[in-house]
Design a protein around this nucleic acid. Structure first.
Lengths: 124, 124
DNA sequence: CAGTATCCCGTATGATACTG
DNA sequence: CAGTATCATACGGGATACTG
């Protein structure tokens, strides 16, 4: 058994341990991005206009309800993934954007998007 | 505006389009891995023992119910992500493993695990 | 062993109306 | 504009018992 194989084994065991134990990075990430709209919201805060107001966000997301959008944004904010910036004016203006932590998650979402694009026409 | 900036703009617009349209790679990937256990099941089919029997899988996943495991495995199979191999014998023996398509998804899950490990102690 | 059948339930989400 | 309050619901998932 050479060193490369040993390394692969170590990596695989680490990966496996990462799944099987409860408090792992994998479970942690899942706890932050689980939910019908969380990843989509994060992803919609990237691109050309990364600072978005509440109603604009709602428009972008299609048929999400006020309630769900509101709750989800609060969770994302309390998890430190997005930043809520409120302008004290009337009518109110609130802008949402990714935090540095949230931005660090984007490459993962990019990879998911990429995978789907490549594999959406796979024969089953 | 130099070429690099142009490239970034193009990339960002592509990413954004990927989110906003309905039938995108991102939505496609999400449709395959959404569910409480799908990603965990896929991930538990990696590592040192990538071929796993039904009850062993159940043990690994902790408190998933028979019903949910059964349903989820069927979905993963019909989505071409896992392979179900049934041995016609008594008592029955069925082994589950990742398909090539399923394996191609593992780097994405690795990245999620990695992100969680790195960021689980971020200050909020 | 590897499931299925049946029943049950909580929670995530939706719809709508209202408010500062 | 940016939400909240209230009510309603659907679906994912759980528990248990049963079967080929």
């Amino acid at each position: 058994m050479n060193e490369e194989v040993i390394n692969e084994t170590v990596i695989n065991e680490t990966v496996n341990a990462c799944v099987l134990q409860e408090d792992t990075g994998f479970a942690y990430t899942l706890s932050l991005v689980s939910g019908k709209y969380k990843m989509v919201i994060l992803y919609s805060l990237t691109g050309a206009t990364p600072v978005v107001r509440f109603n604009e966000l709602k428009r972008r997301l299609g048929k999400i309800s006020f309630r769900t959008l509101s709750l989800t944004l609060k969770e994302l904010e309390s998890d430190g993934l997005i930043i809520r910036n409120e302008y004290p004016q009337i009518p109110p203006k609130v802008e949402y954007s990714l935090s540095a932590r949230g931005q660090s998650l984007i490459p993962v979402l990019d990879m998911m998007c990429e995978w789907g694009t490549v594999h959406s026409n796979d024969p089953l």
